[in-house]
Structures are given as structure tokens and as C-alpha cells.
């Protein structure tokens, strides 16, 4: 009796904080998305009106919302496979017995993960500079004409993808590295005796061995990439021609530029539902593959 009382003293503070500052706001977001919550309601709650699904209806008719959604999906579809590919490549290299100074390389590859996103976005904006940036200088060495990375609607999002891959690949590399090291050594030994080629070993031993972890990191990366915000905020302000306007950027502008907080809550909820559906779909796909 006394002990269970003590237990509540231990969990109570954290649960209260999570309740007030997380669970209540989640419910609040759902409720707010059904109202016309704006600057007037923010100063006096009596100005608040319940408007049902009006926010959702107008959002789904707003071309700018759809634009932000397509941009975000483009970023996810382009960015996730490239990130996972880079992570896997780096993990295989760092895991290879043939490599030297492997823990040094691991640290270097991981360093971008801990850097401040805003700061490295500022750095990359400079690297992407059309005239003085290092990337175009490097490309000119390969005979490629300068690209207006931040000014051309076709190139702005790929530029942000490059930054995201550079910043994030080290994170999944660490997780994949642990998975690679968990594959039993005798499997490789047996393959060597059977005379399997490097590709066959990768295809039939390495890949199946890390498949569950690969699925996990894809889901984690994808949910992270759906939350694109700081990169376009710093590098392009959503431009040019709204080509880098992400869903969260759209939500931020609706909420804190136009103060349509009700509408912004509806945006947040739609994004959440979308992320949830895509995750569930991926999990199902992964499970089917696993069954076979």
C-alpha cells in the first residue's frame, strides 16, 4: 500500500507534464481543427465558433495545400531511398574488414547528425550559391554548366534532398551497422566454401539478415522527412514559385503568419493521418514480404 503510493510520486510528475503538454494538446488540436480559432479567439475564447469540418473542406479545395502536399511527398519519395542507400553504403564500408581506421570514419560520417539543422542549412545555401558556391565549381570541373539551385523551381527541392541526405545518413548507418554485426559469421563462412560471389553473398545473406532493420529505418526516416520545415525556411523561404513549400511550412504560415489557428490544426491533423496511413502500409508490405 505504502509502496504503491510511493510509486505514484515517482511517475506522477512525468505523467502530469505529458498529460498537460502532450495529450491535452493532441485532443486540443482535433477540437481546434473544428473551429474558426483565430487571433480574436486567442485574446478572448468567447469569439470561438464551432464550424464542423469547414476547415477540412476548404483545405482540400486549396491548391496551395495540395502543392505543399505534393512537394512533401516528392521530398519523401526522393529523399528516403537516397538516404537509406547512402546509410547502407556507409554501413557496409565501415563494417568491411578491408577498411582501416574504421572507428574514425564512423565518427566522421556521423558528425553531421549532431549538427544544428539551421546552421548547416545556412552553410549549404552558400555551397549551392550559383556563382560562388563550391558545388557549381565542382560541377564545372566535370563540364556541367552552373545550376541555379536555389532559384530554379526544378532544382530547389533536389538541393534540399542533398542537404537532408548529407545530414541524416549517419544516423541510420549506426543502426544498420549494429544489424550487420549481428549476422552470424558462419553464414559468410559457409557461403565462401560454396564459392558464392560477393553479390550473391550480399543478396542472399546480408540483405535478408538486415531486412527487418531496413524496414524500421525506412519508416523512421520517412516519418522524419514528412516533417520537413527548417530547410525550406532557411534556404528558400518555400520558394521559388512555392516549389519547396512543405506541409509543415504551410501549417506554420497558416497558423503564425495569418493566425488561422483552427485551419493550421486541420493541416497538422491531415499530415498526421497521412503519415499514419503510409506507415501502416509499409508495415503491412514488410510483413507480407516476411511471410513469403
Amino acid at each position: 500500500m505504502k509502496r504503491s503510493m510511493a510509486a505514484w510520486w515517482f511517475v506522477g510528475p512525468a505523467l502530469i507534464v505529458l498529460g498537460v503538454f502532450f495529450f491535452v494538446p493532441v485532443l486540443g488540436a482535433l477540437l481546434m481543427s473544428l473551429t474558426d480559432f483565430d487571433l480574436y479567439a486567442l485574446s478572448d475564447w468567447r469569439n470561438l465558433r464551432f464550424i464542423g469540418f469547414h476547415n477540412y473542406v476548404t483545405l482540400l479545395q486549396d491548391p496551395l495545400f495540395w502543392k505543399s502536399l505534393w512537394n512533401t511527398l516528392y521530398f519523401v519519395v526522393l529523399g528516403v531511398p537516397l538516404s537509406i542507400g547512402a546509410s547502407l553504403g556507409a554501413a557496409l564500408l565501415v563494417n568491411s574488414r578491408l577498411g582501416r581506421f574504421r572507428s574514425f570514419f564512423r565518427t566522421v560520417y556521423f558528425a553531421p547528425v549532431v549538427t544544428t539543422l539551421v546552421a548547416v542549412a545556412v552553410v549549404w545555401r552558400y555551397i549551392f550559391h550559383t556563382r560562388y558556391g563550391f558545388l557549381n565549381y565542382g560541377l564545372s570541373g566535370l563540364g556541367i554548366d552552373p545550376i541555379d539551385w536555389m532559384g530554379d523551381p526544378h532544382w530547389a527541392m533536389p538541393a534540399i534532398v542533398i542537404l537532408a541526405v548529407w545530414k541524416n545518413f549517419g544516423y541510420n548507418m549506426i543502426i544498420l551497422l549494429a544489424a550487420l554485426q549481428n549476422i552470424p559469421e558462419d553464414l559468410y563462412e559457409a557461403a565462401r566454401i560454396d564459392g558464392a560471389s560477393g553479390w550473391q553473398v550480399f543478396r542472399h545473406i546480408t540483405l535478408p539478415g538486415i531486412a527487418p532493420v531496413l524496414l524500421l529505418v525506412s519508416i523512421l526516416t520517412m516519418t522524419g522527412y514528412f516533417q520537413l520545415f527548417a530547410e525550406p525556411y532557411v534556404m528558400t523561404e518555400g520558394g521559388p514559385l512555392q516549389s519547396t513549400l512543405s506541409v509543415l511550412y504551410f501549417m506554420y504560415e497558416e497558423g503564425f503568419k495569418w493566425w488561422s489557428l483552427g485551419r493550421a490544426s486541420a493541416v497538422a491533423f491531415l499530415l498526421f493521418v497521412l503519415m499514419f496511413l503510409v506507415t501502416a502500409f509499409q508495415l503491412r508490405l514488410g510483413r507480407q514480404r516476411g511471410d513469403r
Binding site: V26, L261, A264
Partner: peptide, 28 residues
């Protein structure tokens, strides 16, 4: 009492991105 249930509920909440809470949190 309810230790496992509460913990499972907390873990379930991990799927909710923090951005969902941001606007009501601002009002709060």
C-alpha cells in the same frame, strides 16, 4: 495499479508527431 496499461498507452503515443500538438500548445 495500471502500470502496464499506462506504459503501453505512452508507447502508443510515440506515433503522434510533436507538430500536431504545436498549435494548441501555443494557445495553452
Amino acid at each position: 495499479k495500471g502500470r502496464e496499461r499506462i506504459f503501453q498507452t505512452l508507447l502508443g503515443a510515440l506515433v503522434i508527431p510533436a507538430q500536431v500538438t504545436m498549435i494548441p500548445l501555443f494557445a495553452l
